[in-house]
Design a protein around this nucleic acid. Structure first.
Lengths: 90, 90
DNA sequence: CCCAAATTATCCAGTTTTGGGATAATCCAA
DNA sequence: TTGGATTATCCCAAAACTGGATAATTTGGG
């Protein structure tokens, strides 16, 4: 099997998710609870040890009270550009 | 371990991806080639035997010449409503 | 209808990833 | 320091992935 985890793009996605959680001022434990998962679940994906599929991504965004589409757009632009996080659409 | 594959939402996501490929008139083999993967890769996820993460979702959408954000929106609305695919925003 | 090419689904077996409770680190304010 | 809060790791069986090979299904002539 080839490892697909921990690609540069995946790393950027993680950055965005962590940033989103922090901006929302929510702890891993609290987010985990909202998602009906153990805290280690959050620690795992934020630590890049676990991938996140579409359905989970949506659930996470909503649990963070963030618009999934907006967050998705950020992932996209992060992918398009070399790296860097959100950019004020300028 | 508990099975996490094959949820109702995941099934809807798949429907959308299959529909997108067919609308694009592309075969599994061709799509696979664009993604640098074997045909079985496509067959697997279209058959619901494999999950798709964010990065892959974007790559697939682009390989199908579909706007990732648009496709993502469809997934979202499909999730919001009971099921059904795209709805003309009416 | 028949056949063959095209397309998609399944098999297999070896590898990688995941789940989640427990526990170990870290952080941080008092 | 101290200890509660927060996050990272461990463990390891179960589950998911891989991709080439092969089987099954579909499609379009003739």
């Amino acid at each position: 099997m080839q490892k697909s985890l921990r690609s540069a793009e995946h790393a950027r996605l993680i950055e965005l998710l962590v940033a989103a959680r922090q901006k929302a001022g929510i702890r891993q434990h609290a987010l985990a609870k909202k998602l009906g998962r153990p805290q280690s679940f959050i620690a795992k994906y934020e630590g890049g040890e676990r991938r996140i599929d579409i359905v989970e991504f949506i659930a996470i965004a909503q649990a963070l009270s963030v618009d999934p589409v907006k967050l998705f757009r950020e992932v996209l632009s992060a992918k398009a550009r070399g790296s860097a996080a959100k950019q004020p659409t300028r």
